[in-house]
């Protein structure tokens, strides 16, 4: 059965966007993105991101464990986004942290670095697992973010991503209805 989108499409999308704006402007800040109608196994925050930012202009890629018929149907109905098979074509890639196609995502071009993918990365939770020390624009001095379920490949990939600047992939870490952003400018180090 098709579950619902935002109960109030205008104001719920605005609230979710403001949370994402705050999260992106202040990397490592954990924000709430509730969305009661998320189809299993798509977490609430991922559903809220899709409803807020995705539409027919944004190609969406889902990893194998998320690309269930109910999720695909829900995304097509509520966002009209084209679902693509190759992560390199995606504007938004939704993936589990352990199976994410880090290296295959679009990083934009030197002249149009904004034409890169946003990676919505599903992690286990914002509890001690890996303790990350963040710095860069949006962070006054340093910020500490605990994330459970990040593979070690993530940190190596982030270092390479940072070296590409201004090209690069922007990451939204999500778990349940919580999200935190790691835009391409954020320096991520393990404590």
């Amino acid at each position: 059965m098709l579950t619902c989108g935002f109960a109030d499409p205008v104001h719920d999308a605005q609230a979710a966007f403001r949370a994402l704006l705050e999260a992106t402007a202040r990397p490592g800040t954990i924000v709430s993105l509730p969305q009661s109608g998320a189809p299993q196994p798509l977490p609430e925050a991922a559903a809220a991101i899709a409803l807020t930012l995705c539409d027919r202009d944004t190609a969406v890629w889902l990893d194998a464990c998320l690309a269930t018929p109910s999720v695909c149907q829900w995304l097509r109905f509520h966002t009209a986004s084209p679902l693509v098979a190759d992560p390199a074509d995606a504007c938004f890639a939704f993936a589990r942290a352990d199976t994410a196609p880090f290296g295959s995502l679009s990083t934009g071009t030197d002249e149009a670095p904004e034409r890169s993918a946003i990676l919505v990365l599903l992690v286990k939770g914002f509890v001690p697992g890996r303790v990350l020390r963040l710095s860069g624009p949006g962070i006054e001095t340093e910020k500490v973010l605990s994330v459970d379920g990040l593979p070690s490949a993530f940190l190596a990939w982030r270092a390479g991503n940072l070296a590409l600047y201004p090209r690069g992939v922007d990451v939204l870490l999500i778990s349940g209805n919580k999200a935190a952003a790691l835009p391409r400018t954020t320096v991520v180090q393990e404590v």
């Binding site: 966007f17 402007a25 944004t58 904004e114 949006g138 922007d170 391409r184 400018t185």
Partner: peptide, 13 residues
């Protein structure tokens, strides 16, 4: 939505 996507990219770069 289009402006919001542009704003998030603008903050990231």
């Amino acid at each position: 939505r289009e402006i919001r996507r542009a704003l998030l990219k603008a903050l990231a770069i």
